[in-house]
Design a protein around this nucleic acid. Structure first.
Lengths: 350, 350
DNA sequence: GCGGCAAATCATAGCGCTACGATTTATAAA
DNA sequence: TTTATAAATCGTAGCGCTATGATTTGCCGC
């Protein structure tokens, strides 16, 4: 056993593996400084003298140096990546938030690593596990509902966690979003204020989308408090105009007195408007319709759709700000909450 | 100078930096094998014996080991990340492709790193530079138009490149998509077949979106060949129903003979339909309208919208397949092209 | 029991970079 | 000048993992 080779000149010709063409050492040689200085320049340019700085900048430029972020991340035990985990980017809400975060993070040279849960907690858990293996600068999760394992992993890790798009439940660290129950309540109050007495909530995918469910619950509660008749109809499929049309058509048969509907989503509301048109139901005279989301078509349709605009952009921007602040050492108070609010847009459909 | 410390027992008490709680070495100790075997098990489970495998699996489970992907990536000079660069995920087309890629890649434990160019070649160049510094398993770009620097960087790197959503131009390596000019031509032919003689193309953001421009060019060419009158109207803003309504309203004033319009996008077409309704223009009797995209509302609106469905999902799926095949050593032929085609959906608006 | 071979396992040498502490150089005070 | 102090720069030791080639083990026929 124990037969180490003597460490003399005899070298077991173990050839080096594939290498990156240009490394920091090359830049350092070219700029006639040490690698440490190059590294320092890259991380904190102001800590390096102007002359060394420009020599390094030239060398980088000339050699077309691309730093190896994995080596850097390994050495620093943290990377310039932010993991964003959302149910799906097919959903315009989350696409908006992801997009605005990406824009804000890019300015700080932070990368976005994206994951989709498809509303599955198990999937989320797996995504979080993988995310952690990148030692990201932060992890962004959608909503406040997570599996126990997910919570455990995150609270045992040093990675900052931000939960977005939902407030009002137990949070891991920081949360940025708004209260969905309040959205529902605001919808109910608006319809009642318009003189509606027989309310109906049309929802899609509420078994999975717990925020849609919260909006529904808020709607029911506010309507109940006001002593107005109220009911719910739902469909398990993801929100779409087809589902909205289907639900409305069925609603008008089974609940003919209905004079005000709120939808879990503008897609549903749009479908409802289309169906009203086909059925000859006057909106808003006979039936008031409102949605949630203020999607791209909501202001343009006939009649224009009363809806509630969540600040998806703002959520992304604020989440990004928190991450950037954290990296700069400006910690927010623990368990802090940023309420981005929402806006009711009263248009022609109510 | 040159005063190295003797390498005796005297140790400058340089304490180790922050460390990851559980490393592969811990797992190896627990499973009573060497770290190499653990690494091998993680990468090629079939290469270790069943007994060692299960011991390792137990240890991983018990210790709750999370591998450090950056260390792995550094050592292997390639990571399990795929960089996807699209104009924006706010655009439903790209959101769909990103989403379907992410789903397919996840099964192979590949991460998606997302970047948005906002239709800016300079931004794209920057994103590609950053992407390369992660040594990704592949880089996915949107379209075939890139800056020279981008092309140079990519062709000098060993990272496979896939261009999506566009065919028909000079490509870097592999391309997955369809011919946009053919989409335009198909639209024109369809309208002509429906007896329309005064065609109009409504486009948004065509100065930036070169694929929208190609569709427009294809439309003009096919209409011209058929000897039919044809014109174009455009707006620089991103596609939306508002823009569509605005363009249609203007069109009917300045080009009152128009009896068939094709839009660069279903959002535009939807806005056009809304405006027709407001103006009392009968669709399709007086005016045929068609779009592009088959977005979620397109089948549900009044009248339902004739449109062309690009296979955004399929593009993502095929691109993911190429990446996975590449990693498994199954190379596609160089400069290969996957044409995902498109489908014309003839509905009520034409 | 012994070679002969394949299967399984291991030890080692980095991958390219950053953090740390030490060293050198510039600047101010004595 | 000398000394104290700050600013700039540097040398070194890993970060946790994988690729490589070497070694060990298991299994066969003889």
């Amino acid at each position: 056993m124990a037969d180490h080779l003597k460490s003399g000149l005899e070298r077991p010709q173990r050839r080096r593996r594939k290498m990156q063409s240009i490394t920091m050492t090359d830049v350092a040689e070219h700029a006639k400084v040490s690698p440490s200085t190059v590294s320092l320049y890259l991380r904190r340019p102001e800590a390096v003298s102007a002359s060394a700085g420009s020599a390094i900048a030239h060398a980088i430029d000339k050699l077309n140096y691309v730093p190896n972020l994995m080596a850097g991340g390994l050495a620093a035990a943290s990377s310039r990546a932010v993991s964003i985990i959302v149910p799906s980017v097919r959903n315009a809400f989350f696409a908006e938030t992801v997009s605005s975060m990406q824009t804000a993070l890019r300015r700080e040279r932070l990368q976005v690593i994206l994951g989709h849960t498809e509303y599955d907690e198990r999937e989320e858990e797996d995504l979080v596990r993988t995310a952690l293996s990148w030692s990201p600068a932060a992890i962004v999760l959608t909503g406040l509902a997570h599996s126990d394992a997910t919570r455990r992993m995150l609270s045992h890790s040093p990675v900052p966690v931000i939960e977005i798009w939902e407030l009002g439940g137990p949070q891991i660290e920081t949360a940025v979003g708004f209260h969905h129950a309040e959205v529902g309540a605001a919808s109910a109050r608006h319809l009642i204020q318009q003189g509606r007495q027989h309310l109906l909530y049309l929802g899609a995918r509420m078994h999975e989308d717990q925020r849609a469910r919260q909006r529904c619950d808020g709607f029911l509660a506010a309507a109940g408090e006001a002593g107005v008749s109220v009911d719910v109809m739902q469909h398990p499929a993801p929100a779409s105009a087809d589902v909205g049309a289907m639900l409305l058509s069925e609603a008008m048969q089974t609940r003919p007195l209905t004079d005000g509907v709120a939808c879990s989503n503008d897609h549903i509301a749009l479908g409802a408007l289309f169906e009203c048109e086909r059925l000859g139901i006057a909106v808003p005279d006979r039936l008031a319709v409102m949605g949630f989301g203020d999607l791209s078509f909501s202001g343009a349709c006939n009649p224009s759709l009363t809806t509630i605009r969540p600040s998806g952009d703002l959520i992304g921007k604020e989440a990004a700000r928190l991450i950037i602040d954290h990296m700069a050492g400006r910690e927010p108070p623990a368990q802090s909450v940023i309420d981005t609010r929402f806006t009711l847009l009263h248009r022609r459909s109510s």
